[in-house]
Amino acid sequence: MSKITDKLREYRVDGYYTEFDYHWTMTVDLDRCTGCEACVVACQAENNLPIVGEKRMRQGREMKWIRVERYWDGDYPNARLNFIPMLCQQCDQAPCEIACPVFATYHNQDGLNAQVYNRCIGTRTCAVYCPYEVRFFNWFTYTWDEPLEQQLNPDVTVREKGVMEKCTFCIQRINRAKDAARDEDRRVGDGEAQPACAQACPTDAIVFGDRNDPDSAVSQKMQDPRAYEVLKELNTAPSVIYLKNARAPLHAEKDEGHHREEAAEAHAAAGEPRWADSGKAAS
């Protein structure tokens, strides 16, 4: 009996791992980030993201494992635009992981939120449960116009219709670094594994590394007083830590009704499909 209860207790540990071998973590310094979107294309190139085409874009079916979100502050002439790159947060208490009926998504020994394409049956529950909306569904089997497919990264699979996909922290690169380290009987050093977005970032806003190593660059960055988690109130324990933009606030005096106005403005466009296109649109 006690064996069973022990087993149950083990089962109840969040994500099943009490400790991770590596705890891959990313910090995104919003003060450095310029919103240039080099990371977005780097990710597309590395991870064989499909070119969905204009029609699918209009239908709101873009595939960008990392995207740059934009938020305006204030109005002309005191307007300001803020950027925040959004990618899978690799939550340690991931809402998506409880959702999948077939365990296509699970937490791995490195603290990563892994997605098993082969196992996915496409209920899309994980994407609905994900508060960051960083899961992407293959609505179709996408193809590449020949010979664009010759660019595809052989280290990453190409997904078929009906499968959910998302940022993996470039697990193929992590595994390569781990293999190399294992051959030399050592741990992966700081900076040896870099996801494509971090490597491309021209301002070094994205830093990636192992949180378990207190000396790693990412551990250092996490100590920054500007560090915060997006949607912390949901208690998802994300592995992507943002460093707040240090720009002085735009409005010293922010009036009470401000948010409501913003919301009203936001809703004004609500009835409209976001792809502002009607069937009779002129080309």
Binding site: L30, E69, Y71, W72, N82, I84, Y228, K244, H258, A276
Partner: peptide, 29 residues
């Protein structure tokens, strides 16, 4: 104005934070 809608695809829905603390907790700098 030509009085009709054009073909425009935008990926951003609402580019306001609506008071949500997405860009960091308020009041700390």
């Amino acid at each position: 104005a030509l009085g009709k809608r054009g073909r425009l695809i935008r990926t951003s829905g609402v580019s306001r934070t609506l008071g949500r603390q997405i860009l960091g907790p308020d009041g700390e700098h």
